[in-house]
Design a binder for these strands. Structure first.
Lengths: 249, 249
DNA sequence: TGGCCGCATTAACATATGACACAGGTGGAT
DNA sequence: ATCCACCTGTGTCATATGTTAATGCGGCCA
């Protein structure tokens, strides 16, 4: 499969994200700024490393389609998936600070990204203060999600963690239009789930199977089916707060 | 002790943070903007709740002095301390998005905060794009720290976690001028340490004592002494990256 | 002065979770 | 076809960490 940049370039007026209810739409002025600010578009195959740990990226990205994961690794090979990246999310903002990335990013599905130049980020803040502000807003969202994950890893049992991650992914998928009925098409291996939740592979497997037998939650290789989302969120003791539409750039 | 706002108001030109090596200093233009942007100053006693979970804060703060903690709680009482807040850090930026706070903040020491108005944040981005950009930079830093904590909770053993937290706090303290020689004056109860690391109180106690006996690390009620910071960081498998001076507002 | 309270400390015991080892299925590469 | 890598699923056993409960100590307050 091809994982290199493609010439195709969605005009910002037709940005697929504009339609999403959970995302805030842009003014025409903002749209036309973004149009010229946008450097290009990139499509990558599943399993492509989009950003690599320790490198300094010359680009900043916005996800147009697809799901990706952010992760950190230790020298001895241990890996922690720190968060998942959905359409509308900003990627690699650390690069804009000219600092080496402290995490890697890998695509979990085919994905297409909107490409911006690291060096022009300040220009965005200068010309479009509101969009600059929105960038901070997005960062605040990311922080809130990470806080939530920390709560999960620090305080929840294995069962609760699995229920938590399932609800989290499902809700994010729902907000970005990726769910159909009770299912979210996402393919995570159990190893990836384990590396997200800080559990061993074996125990993750057992926990997922217990859910499957209960019928509450069926998490297979290609999709996540949640029969009763409220039930699962209760079980996880997860209080999802639905907020106002999030901005994006 | 008094924990209410006080009239005292440090002029920005004499901001104690300007002197820190690890923080970037401001231009005189930026300083004078901040001077009028600053709404006031607040001094709080140890153990004061500065921001409360679920509330919508009308203020955003920068820490001038002191150490605070950010935490989340679950309905059944479980608590996770998600990060520590040092001088130069921004607090409550979620408030600027007019959204309810997803975490609380409590002072661990006497602390003094610089107060800004939530509603004027956009003005900051408009008039001082660089400072707006810096705000995003700060958020990116916070994200990186949270990623690091997730790695600790998800992948490290109890021993490694304690060593990690000790190094993390010590380095942050060092960067903000709070260490003297091998010690950092900070008073954390073992319960707080446990709630940071996702360990039980008893096991935290055992682990800390083991370190104390080894002499590598003495963590008492009022201070943290690290005999050999490199040794402790090795033990934690923690690779601290020292970056360029961080900005602040 | 006595009593209460928060905190550190210890011991004895319980268990959730991890480690290891192996089987079986699937799909891609050659 | 054959091989190989990767993934899910199992069983057995090991152990790091959690739980409960009791002790002691210092500070604070009536």
């Amino acid at each position: 499969m091809d994982s290199r940049s493609k010439p195709h370039r969605t005009p910002c007026k037709e940005c697929p994200l504009q339609g999403l209810e959970s995302l805030r739409s842009m003014t025409t002025d903002q749209l036309s700024f973004m149009q010229q600010f946008k450097q290009g578009e990139m499509s990558v195959a599943k399993a492509t490393q989009v950003l690599v740990e320790m490198s300094i990226s010359p680009h900043v990205y916005t996800v147009l389609a697809g799901i990706l994961m952010r992760f950190k690794t230790m020298e001895d090979g241990r890996r922690q998936i720190v968060n998942y990246v959905f359409p509308g999310d900003l990627l690699g903002i650390q690069g804009a600070m000219q600092e080496p990335l402290t995490h890697g990013v890998e695509a979990l599905t085919e994905a297409t990204l909107c490409v911006f130049s690291r060096d022009r980020m300040l220009e965005l803040f200068r010309e479009q203060p509101q969009l600059g502000f929105d960038t901070t807003w997005l960062s605040a969202k990311e922080e809130a999600a990470l806080d939530e994950h920390l709560l999960a890893l620090g305080q929840r049992t294995a069962r609760e963690r699995v229920a938590y991650l399932a609800s989290f992914l499902f809700m994010r998928g729902k907000d970005t239009g990726l769910t159909r009925g009770h299912t979210l098409k996402i393919s995570l291996t159990q190893t990836q789930i384990a590396d997200t939740l800080g559990l061993s592979l074996v125990h993750t497997n057992r926990t997922i199977q217990a859910f499957r037998r209960s019928g509450l939650l069926v998490w297979s290789q290609n999709e996540l089916m949640i029969a009763d989302i409220d039930g699962v969120m209760d079980l996880a003791k997860y209080e999802h707060m639905s907020f106002r539409p999030r901005p994006f750039i």
